[in-house]
Design a protein around this nucleic acid. Structure first.
Lengths: 205, 205, 205, 205
DNA sequence: TATGAATGAGAGTTCATTCAT
DNA sequence: TATGAATGAACTCTCATTCAT
């Protein structure tokens, strides 16, 4: 990487790519170091183990995602506005950072405990997105008769599933359908449109 | 495993569990053999490599899923009926076979090419579910003005995302929300209800 | 090593030599395997870690020593007879097995806790030498007015020091004195004579 | 360490402790530096290698020991006086500097050649203790019929073994006997008494 | 005199795979 | 069909040492 960027940052970035591509066990410390343009030993100098580097990468990934979410959620948000904006912001963000959903999903499967712990830590440190506040908002939407879904957990599962699985599941659906979707921009635009329509029509009262 | 089951079957079953829990690279041949109650060498005797055992496991998993799907899709299916039945069947099936979604998603990320190839092979051998026929059906639903989504790829992404991500994403949403969902049956019932309602209200015209 | 000897034995023997020559940290797993005529991985196959191999070596060394001691100590032993025979048997045994005192002393310094634990284990399994019985014997010798030293701990320290330090300390004394002692047999004979005389004259009443 | 002590001194002291506890190979340069309160690089700045630092530590240890010995040996020394005073002085000195016997014994085993060379160097620079003069004294004691042991090498081995092995062998004897000796002062007093009595009774004519 | 960052060689350990029986 | 022993390559990690400042 650029000589100006500190080695630590370079390792973190390279680790993110490698872990996203191969998962924790599949990733090679050697490959990460090479990609970061430095010595294997530096990785241990800064992160002391592959595991800890991985945690740092995961924490970074989650941190970015929730920083992004913080921007969408604010006091006077209506459910309509939320459903119009969230999928676009989220899907575009994941498209710009394709490693993120992979790392998330890999870890979600491999070690859910660790995932939860890391997330809890993120929320503690990141004041921009407050999950409790958001949950309260969803509940009040239901109480005001604005949305059909009364359980905020399922509300969120619906929203997040549609957004995040767009990425992971795309090859699956392509394989099933035999259709190759347009690459890049066109696909995301269509995807966002489809999700927004489904959410608004399906969840607003 | 049981002395009655052949070693080969025992290895396949153990492999499925191990691969689901740790992914391809994370899985250990030794652990699979031990769990199968036999010698490491037997694994190579029957499957000749870890990679080939993995492919057999993945093929088995996909085969089961599409056999299940075959039961839902038939000539006179209406979209309403499809949306009422699919999530329930699919979610309950995945709940009974929790290793399946994990293996799918792991492999989807790790090696999408292989995933597609394996799927294509499945379709060739498995006459019960014909994706092309199903796609045609979705298109005709749209042409008849029964559904809002014109692109069958996004139609399927919507349906599948909501079902499969229920499993993978549950710990994520629990971590965000701080809510522990009811375990097992109650959760699945609620999940199915929510997905069916969303799909019917959101995608039917 | 001989093809007939099992690899496990060969590794144990090679480990003893290597640990004696270089201590625990100085010893190289690679070197042990090479000396044992087998692959590094075999060492882990049988002993699972360098540390555990080391413990096995130490336990073996201690076991041999106490098996030897068991031969000297019996019911009707007089202190005179003990002092006449013990140094000879012990010194000759250590001379035949020069790795033993080195390993003992290395470990005594490095990890006294581990040393004690290992010894305790040896005594439990090795019925030939019963330290408690021997201690009782020493006490009764003093009560009968046969020996001057009333504390059995110091009695043993005296006896053992003179025997074991003959080996470790020899290069030290040679360096101080500038004298090169005769190698091998002649030295041991002289050493045994000197120790026996000192013990008998100095400790018998 | 203390800001007043120069870094060089601090490193030497820390090195002595670390080498004594873990031997040459077991000692870590990093740990020494940390214990000395300074940077790893400083260690190389002052001593240019781990090996050279070790030699400096060993030389220091031996120097202190022989400086101490110089005080005991003087022209008109009688063997009786020597045996009365030497064990006490030596044992108390080692008790005050517990790292010394460990380093000595570690090195004695690991690299006797180096040990001898270092010792020779010490004697050349340290006029207070002249081993040749002392040996002549022992020989003349024998010629005058004052002591039983005619070989000065065995005379010294006897004296030194009993003193130095008190430290190294103590955990061994405690493990054998199951007795925990009194800690500290009481043990040393008893040990000195026992050694002095044995030497005087056993070696004086 | 002091430091944080960097390095290369090599350490212990793991792992898929094969062999002899 | 089954097994315990063996292997070589690769892996994560360590460590003495050096460099730039």
């Amino acid at each position: 990487m650029a000589k100006t960027a500190s080695s630590k940052e370079a390792i973190l970035a390279a680790g993110r790519r490698e872990f996203a591509a191969r998962g924790f066990s599949g990733a090679r410390v050697e490959a990460i170091a090479r990609a970061a343009g430095c010595n294997k030993a530096m990785l241990f100098y800064y992160f002391s183990s592959k595991e800890k580097l991985y945690r740092a990468v995961l924490a970074g990934a989650l941190g970015e995602i929730f920083a992004e979410l913080g921007g969408v959620v604010h006091a006077r948000l209506t459910p309509e506005r939320f459903m119009e904006r969230f999928p676009g912001i989220y899907i575009r963000f994941l498209a710009r950072n394709p490693d993120l959903p992979r790392i998330l999903v890999f870890d979600l499967i491999r070690d859910p405990e660790n995932f939860s712990r890391t997330m809890a830590g993120i929320f503690r440190e990141n004041s921009e997105f407050n999950p409790q506040r958001f949950l309260g908002m969803v509940r009040s939407w239901h109480d005001q008769g604005l949305i059909a879904e009364e359980d905020p957990l399922h509300f969120m599962l619906n929203v997040i599933s549609l957004s995040i699985f767009s990425f992971v599941g795309r090859p699956m659906v392509e394989a099933i359908s035999g259709l190759r979707s347009e690459d890049g921009e066109a696909f995301y635009r269509a995807r966002i449109r489809s999700v927004v329509r489904l959410l608004k029509k399906g969840m607003l009262k």
